[in-house]
Amino acid sequence: MVTKLIRDFCDPGYSSIYLVDDNGTPKILKVLQQRYNNKPRIIQLFRQEVEVLKNLEHPAIPKADCYFQHPVSNGKSLHCVVMEKIEGCTLKEWLQQHQPIDQKQAIEWLEQIVNILNFVHQRKYLHRDVRANNIMIEKSGKLVLIDFAGAIKRDLIYKTYAYIRKVISAFIFTKTETDGYTPPEQNRNYCLPQSDFFSLGRTFVYLLTGKEPKDESMYDGKYKVLTWRKYAINGVSERSGNLIDKLMTPNVSERYKNAREILEEIRIIKEELDANKLKIL
């Protein structure tokens, strides 16, 4: 059985998504659209997701089965990936059916995603596209981080390349305007674990406010300032707001150094929430 899914699992328009039956087990089949068959870079990204996922065995990350090519009548081949089907919807879809979340829910979800990113970063990978479209929620409430097509391993070659790009960008002016989720340094072609934190912070602004990070009511494009707290539908405490702001500060050195620092701050906030010590602003 093969069923085309209307919902695209955040693939950026490169592939068609199908639900397939593998001996009674539902799985996802991603097929790269043929118009990209002459785009080696896109093919490489499409293929590498399987290898990345095989190196990231985690209950909150989809499992990948295989990559293969399937010949078609025009003499060309279809590039295909088979992977685990996650039962649920993306947080973007969830928000379209619900009100923006309150800070208690935000802290619970944030803790889940930071734990996943901690695992990913410990294995020297960067996700590079954290956003509500790429986080799924199962019926149990468990969150799953998906779409690792753009993930990169921070090996010695990449670290050297990233350092060179960082030095070059310090002397050459480059435009760093992004879609609101991509950090400035990533737009200059170098990334760090803190780059995923930036995207995570912007994602939770969206979940708390229902507004995209570059919504004109919140974002000042001239000064690159995001004034979001007053748009949090259910309010947010100063400490929780500070956590999110620190995740997404434009200056990498001012963000949290690692996931453990974020988890420690989350632990303190949860204790204060339980004791009703956090004042909603």
Rank of each mutant, 00 (worst) to 15 (best):
E84Q: 15
I137D: 07
A64K: 14
H79D: 14
E84R: 02
K142C: 05
V120P: 03
Q122E: 15
M83Y: 12
I86N: 12
G150N: 06
A151N: 06
Q122N: 14
S77A: 13
V82M: 07
L117V: 03
K76R: 14
L145P: 00
N74I: 00
S77M: 14
W94S: 15
E84D: 10
C89S: 07
H121I: 01
Y67M: 05
N118T: 10
A149V: 03
D147G: 01
H79I: 08
I135C: 10
L117N: 07
A132E: 11
N74F: 06
L126P: 01
C66M: 01
S73W: 11
D147F: 04
H127V: 03
V81D: 08
E138P: 04
I107H: 05
F68D: 01
A132P: 10
I135Q: 02
D102C: 09
L78G: 07
V130W: 01
K139C: 02
C66S: 00
L110S: 09
Q103Y: 11
N118L: 12
Q122I: 05
E93N: 14
V130T: 06
W94M: 12
D129A: 07
P100L: 04
T90N: 09
H127N: 11
D147V: 00
F119M: 06
L126I: 05
N134Q: 06
L117S: 04
D65L: 02
T90F: 10
N133R: 10
L91E: 05
N134H: 06
G75F: 11
L91H: 08
Q99P: 05
H98R: 15
D147Y: 03
Q105K: 03
G75R: 09
G141K: 04
